[in-house]
Design a protein around this nucleic acid. Structure first.
Length: 426
RNA sequence: GGAGGGCUCGCCUAGUGGCCGAUGGCGCCGGUCUUGAAAACCGGUAUGGGGAAACUCAUCGUGGGUUCGAAUCCCACGCCCUCCGCCA
């Protein structure tokens, strides 16, 4: 939710923001009107309510004819109050709807356009020279690491088993991510994967992405698509102490996505799946620190990518491809040799105060007054990372070299060898 | 699945129809005292909306109802806790 005070003062700022996103500025004007009629309705209600209260006090003291006369008047008022209140409530609801419809203000400098109009900020690392590279699934199957056939048998398409070194590799990667997060002052956390509707709603995932979300109808709970949801909701309706700096979390959770509308896209292997694991960073900070915090999160992601020795590029996502909460988004895309292109492996968004306003997350400023906090999120590692790791480090004999930084987390293993016969096939 | 208890201002708590936005304690902030601190004492200390301001309105888990008037009475729901059963 955007800042209504700022909207009243500088509506043009938000109209321009809508145009930059490629959306109509009409929503901004609708919001302005809703805001105005809510204030008018509120004032009408408050006026009659104030009268009712003061007359009510007189009734308590009065007696006899005086009391009877007052009662007659207050009875009329009671009806007026009731209608005025109903109108105020309706105006409130209308404002809320209009408020939710306006996305966050886009940060200065974000490239304009759609999905393909991102700007490449930098490319890091040398692309490996691999003759006819095998893809991650072929490598993974030879290593006895990935089993999509049985995943499909047991759970359906876009499901998989990680087995043997596949399971170990993911655990190693995630442990390395958590270790790095702890080293940088993030609070390691393991979060719920099922959340209540208000948590889902508060983080904005029931808006445009509602069809992406699994819902357990019998219990009215949602399966999260990212631990951003529980981490953001963690401090909902709280006033934080940010005097010592941002509060940072690294949450490890399983993530679930319906992948509705992506039928036939990226169907091979584990690139696009219904269930995966992820370590997600999440920061609560003061709004003035958000831009610096965003850079910090990108730096964390790049540190991880450097550790697994994968070539990547960082892109500045264009306005039309931003989520409604984000003011700016940087993605890191890893080189995938079998596809000869970069694929997204991390994404970090600066949500400024947009998400926190909706979740009612505040902090106290120097004067002790509550102010809306800023929130940011970013990926530190996911199951998808196994793809560039396996592919970039594949060797002609079918083995896979383990990046140095990862070796301690794999019991010192330097190479993953193919198994003639995997345990699963035995 | 069954039975019971609870939900009030950071925490604990008082409050059974008007004098209640709400008591007291703890904590926190400021002051007095002190070389300094502690103790003691004094004062302050919820959030949001509207208003230039004076001020005003809302909020006692949520939503409805009764009433001129509800933290307080009635109904429904939510959540938390305990016990029993079942499962792990």
């Amino acid at each position: 939710m955007i800042d209504l005070r700022l909207l009243r003062e500088e509506p043009e700022l938000f109209r321009a923001g809508q145009r930059r996103r490629g959306e109509s500025p009409d929503k901004v004007d609708e919001l302005l009107r809703a805001d105005e009629s809510r204030r008018a309705a509120t004032q009408r209600f408050e006026a009659v309510r104030a009268e009712q209260k003061s007359l009510g006090k007189q009734v308590a003291k009065a007696s006899g004819d005086e009391r009877a006369a007052l009662l007659a008047r207050t009875k009329e008022l009671a009806a007026e109050v009731k209608t005025a209140e109903a109108e105020a409530t309706a105006a409130d609801e209308a404002l809320r709807k209009a408020h939710l419809a306006v996305p966050n203000l886009v940060q200065e400098g974000v490239p304009e356009g759609g999905e393909d109009d991102f700007v490449v900020l930098r490319e890091v690392g040398e692309l490996p020279a691999i003759d006819s590279p095998k893809d991650h699934l072929e490598i993974g199957e030879a290593l006895g690491a990935i089993d999509t056939e049985r995943g499909a048998k047991v759970s359906g398409s876009r499901f998989y088993f990680l087995t043997g070194v596949g399971a170990l590799l993911q655990l190693a990667l995630f442990n390395m991510a958590i270790a790095q997060a702890v080293e940088h002052g993030f609070i390691p956390s393991i979060t719920p994967s099922l959340v209540r509707p208000e948590s889902m709603e508060g983080t904005g995932f029931l808006g445009a992405h509602a069809s992406e979300v699994y819902r357990l109808e019998a219990d009215d709970l949602f399966l999260v698509g990212t631990s951003e949801v529980p981490l953001a909701a963690y401090h909902s309706n709280e006033i934080l102490d940010l005097s010592a700096g941002p509060e940072r979390f690294a949450g490890w959770s399983t993530c679930y996505r319906r992948e509705a509308g992506s039928h036939g896209k990226d169907v091979r292997g584990i690139l696009r799946v219904h269930q995966f694991d992820k370590v997600e960073m999440f920061s609560f900070c003061k709004p003035e620190d958000a831009v610096a915090e965003h850079q910090r999160l990108v730096a964390m992601e790049e540190e991880m990518l450097a550790k697994v020795e994968i070539p990547y590029r960082v892109i500045d996502v264009a306005t039309g491809d931003l989520g409604s909460s984000a003011s700016r988004k940087f993605d890191c895309e890893a080189w995938v040799p079998s596809q000869g292109r970069y694929r997204e492996v991390t994404s970090t968004s600066n949500c400024t105060t947009f998400q926190a306003r909706r979740l009612n997350i505040r902090y106290r400023d120097e004067d002790g007054k509550p102010q809306t906090a800023a929130t940011l999120n970013g990926t530190l590692a996911t199951t998808r990372w196994l793809i560039p790791i396996l592919e970039n480090h594949q060797q002609p004999d079918g083995s896979v070299r383990v990046p140095k930084a990862l070796q301690p987390f794999l019991g010192g293993r330097e190479v993953l060898e193919p198994t003639a016969k995997t345990a699963a096939n035995a």
